[in-house]
Design a protein around this nucleic acid. Structure first.
Lengths: 157, 157
DNA sequence: CTCTGTGCAAACACTTTGCAGCTAA
DNA sequence: TTAGCTGCAAAGTGTTTGCACAGAG
């Protein structure tokens, strides 16, 4: 059974070193410098499975890089989205939540505790967008978005 | 053919007076007072088809209600969501965007100009969420969310 | 060496909160 | 009458910008 993630396990797909190397390469191809700050932010992001906000990444990355500034974290996260190394998870306002997992997947959002939970479901990856939409809009990403209450927040069964 | 909306037409489903009456009734049932401000905000919202932010509603509603404050608009919009008379459109940060159309429908977001476009597609309304997800999460709303570039923003064909 | 990236500080945008007076019921 | 609502003001949170120095290429 394909599991819902958020299972405490790592979200990193493939070897960490490989992903870091691929990231460095992607920076170079985009004409961006590979700085220790960028490496630290990217690594923190892909090691997290809680769809962190800039603030959350900042707190975490500070542990190994005490002098990094919030701006740099913010700018780096936006840059990651720009070059396609991260996505911003759709949400209902509040701080942006980032995700280093760019594999096709979908999200549940708990309306109460704001937790974001990944789930994988191949049929959703292949849903067909109607022609009339494709004609009027260059679709780059399709996601199914579920609102509700997580196990902890919903009234007891 | 089911059209994409945002066609300049009204988004109001059913008679305006009916919807206003239903709204008043819903307020009463929730123990909330029916104030002129609330009526003006709700009416502005359902007459808009651009998924307005609080700011956009504020500017519009001021035309007919010059003394209303931004707070009241904000509080009213959040209240509308609370009682189920409006939804917040999923997005990638920035100001919350509200929608007075609570019929099942889906959204395209232009990554460049941030325009939100509704589309209706019955197969998407009925997609089946896997059992394992339903068991762990009380799903209250299912939406398909498309990112891309709108006709105006995408490179010319 | 050069030009981008960083850190700092300030500005900005959006949202939330506390409170005194007002008003729908 | 009175509980709830409004408007104002202030504070809070999250994000963006300008600039001088630092460091990757």
């Amino acid at each position: 059974m394909r599991s819902m993630s958020n299972n405490g396990g790592s979200k990193i797909h493939g070897n960490l070193t490989e992903r870091m190397d691929a990231f460095k390469e992607r920076c170079r191809q985009a004409g961006l410098k590979v700085t220790p700050q960028r490496i630290a932010v990217f690594r923190t992001l892909i090691e997290s499975n809680e769809h962190p906000s800039a603030e959350m990444v900042f707190r975490q990355v500070r542990k190994i890089f005490p002098n990094i500034s919030m701006d740099t974290v913010n700018r780096t996260l936006l840059m990651l989205k720009e070059i396609g190394a991260a996505i911003v998870v759709p949400g209902l306002g509040g701080p942006k939540r980032f995700d280093g997992n760019i594999q096709p997947h979908h999200h549940l959002i708990c309306m109460k505790c704001k937790k974001i939970i990944d789930f994988y479901h191949e049929p959703f990856d292949n849903i067909q967008v109607p022609q009339r939409v494709k004609r009027a809009f260059a679709v780059s990403r399709i996601t199914v978005y579920l609102e509700g209450l997580c196990d902890k927040c919903r009234p007891k069964r």
